[in-house]
Design a protein around this nucleic acid. Structure first.
Length: 505
RNA sequence: GCGGACGUAGUUCAAUGGUAGAACACUAGCCUUCCAAGCUAGUUAUGCCGGUUCGAUCCCGGUCGUCCGCUCCA
């Protein structure tokens, strides 16, 4: 069990995911590619299930709003590649690339725009570099050490210096001067060149978030779909980021899938809606089977806010305790207050009016935006980690305890033996059930092995046809979690599944 | 991108400068009336490229990948 005597090893989860066809390394036969992953036959089912639950909870059956009536949310599927001007407006071209410097002596890496260099008034001797936020006392000690009592100086950002000055600068943790490398740009957006000619004029970006596609279509949606403020636009899709260090299985990958909803509302109602969505989103993740102990709601500190959220009322993270973050937590979703940052920016850069006209009150304004932005890829990983249950008493050693509604396979139909009497009944049941549920028919090998396999892929129910079936038309139902069996009538199997696999939330 | 460790079947682990082996898993058959049982047979590996060598999985270099620590993380 999680957090108890038996520790869960991420390696075992990764091995299970590969062994049973949930997740493979992308281009595995070529040795993989760092930060890219493929979803196998069961992984894609699981991912689709989680995706569909989100879509249903947002677009098909959105929650009741502050007035007790269902809120209005419409869907969208925008292109991955948009006009590159969109990413200039959004701040990603300017703000999504950081200049980094390395220290050759200490092997540490710093953001050049967060290093402050103190230069003595007479510019003689060593210049001292500090990370932003370094304690004043520490600074003073170092100044006294290098400059004696003569500590008059000017403070300048490292980015303002010419590379020829670097040999005078002592890096924050170094003893000698001149150990910092030239700043290098880390561009966190992947780019591409639409069209057959590859030159800078045709450079475009793979979206680093799906959100901007929503803002770009704000006007189109308002003009075409009779939505009225407050309302939301929801989108699910791939996004791409050049993560410096893809790590922790699919948690931080360079290609991943997002589920984002932009909620447009009146500026003075934004705070209320922010709180509303924080509560909604927490409850949604719980309804997906993530237990309270492993879920955490965390407000962002001011210094970790994204560029668009700085003027807003902050961001709340929904975080999950993954085995590799335990006892810490990792982000599943951020619920940001984006103010009117994005629409205003796109209005300025595009020259198009992105105001909303409130007809009854005869007023125009740029809506404020609350953004619940969830990671579908991360969500799948959280579901797997949450479901992974060690049970040394059973042959498989573990099972995946998915909610029935999310399990890739809802049931397996197993003739107890491969004899002629059992198999045809199983086949008939399978043909009937598959019209309504994703189910497996497994005839080969002894029954224990087949139960074990279904445990490992998280199938909640197994229906077994035995000799009693021949005489009284009953089958056994085996419950994945308890391994208990009961007999039900063959005719009631579909009904049984329908009742057990209730829609979540 | 930096530093360190590592890379042998699906998994866990052997072995060797000269034919790469086991267990479990997997597949098939037999058997089997409920939890990876039994019997028989079978598939599957030295990440990739190069160098040294008569010969390299082993030694060396590069590369790719993994893990740990930095760094980054909208």
């Amino acid at each position: 069990m999680r957090g108890k005597e038996i520790m869960i090893d991420m390696k075992d989860i990764v091995a299970l995911c590969k062994r049973r066809g949930f997740i493979f390394a992308a281009s595995d036969i070529y040795g993989g590619l760092n930060g890219f992953w493929d979803f196998g036959p069961l992984g894609v089912e699981l991912k689709n299930n989680l995706r569909d639950q989100w879509w249903k909870s947002m677009v098909i059956t959105p929650p009741l709003g502050l007035d007790g009536k269902p809120v209005q949310i419409v869907g969208l599927d925008s292109a991955i590649i948009q006009n590159p001007k969109a990413w200039i407006a959004s701040g990603h071209v300017g703000g999504f690339s950081d200049p980094m410097v390395d220290c050759r002596e200490t092997k540490k890496r710093y953001r050049a725009d967060q290093i402050i260099v103190l230069v003595p008034k007479d510019t003689e001797g060593s210049w001292l570099a500090f990370e932003e936020g370094t304690d004043e006392l520490l600074k003073r000690k170092k100044m006294v050490k290098f400059w004696g009592s003569n500590i008059l100086n000017t403070a300048t950002l490292l980015t303002k210096f010419d590379i020829s000055d670097y040999d005078k600068i002592i890096a924050p943790d170094a003893k000698k001067a001149g150990t910092l490398t030239e700043p290098r740009q880390f561009n966190l957006m992947l780019d591409t060149y639409p069209g057959v000619v590859r030159d800078d004029a045709h450079k475009a970006y793979l979206r680093p978030e799906t959100a901007q596609g929503i803002f770009l279509n704000f006007k189109n949606v308002v003009d075409s779909s009779r939505v009225r403020i407050p309302f939301g636009i929801a989108q699910i899709g791939k996004a791409f980021r050049n993560e410096v260090t893809p790590r922790n299985f699919i948690f931080r990958s360079r290609e991943f899938e997002q589920m984002e909803m932009e909620w447009f509302c009146e500026p003075d109602e934004a705070k209320k809606w922010h709180e509303f969505w924080i509560e909604e989103r927490k409850n949604w993740w719980r309804s997906m089977g993530l237990t309270s102990d492993n879920i955490l709601m965390r407000p962002h500190d001011a210094d970790e806010l994204a560029h668009y959220a700085k003027e807003g009322l902050g961001t709340y993270d929904v975080e999950y305790k993954f085995p590799f973050t335990d006892p810490g937590f990792g982000e599943l979703e951020g619920i940001a207050h984006r103010c009117d940052f994005d629409l205003k920016a796109h209005q300025e850069h595009s020259g198009q009016k992105l105001e909303y006209f409130d007809q009854p009150n005869n007023k125009r304004f740029i809506p404020h935006v609350i953004e619940p932005a969830a990671g579908l890829t991360r969500g799948v990983l959280a579901l797997i980690c949450e479901a992974y249950t060690i049970d040394e008493t059973r042959p498989s050693g573990c099972y995946l305890n998915f909610l029935p509604a999310l399990a890739p396979k809802k049931a397996a139909i197993l003739p107890l033996t491969a004899k002629d009497e059992h198999v045809p009944i199983a086949q008939k049941l399978y043909m009937e059930l598959r019209e309504e549920f994703p189910v497996d028919l497994d005839i080969k090998q002894n029954i224990g092995k087949r139960y074990a396999r279904q445990d490992e892929i998280g199938t909640p129910y197994c229906f077994t046809i035995d000799n009693d079936t021949l005489s009284d038309s009953t089958v056994t139902v085996r419950d994945r979690n308890t391994m208990k069996q009961e007999r039900i009538n063959l005719d009631n199997v579909a009904k049984y599944l329908r009742e057990k696999i209730k829609p979540v939330s």
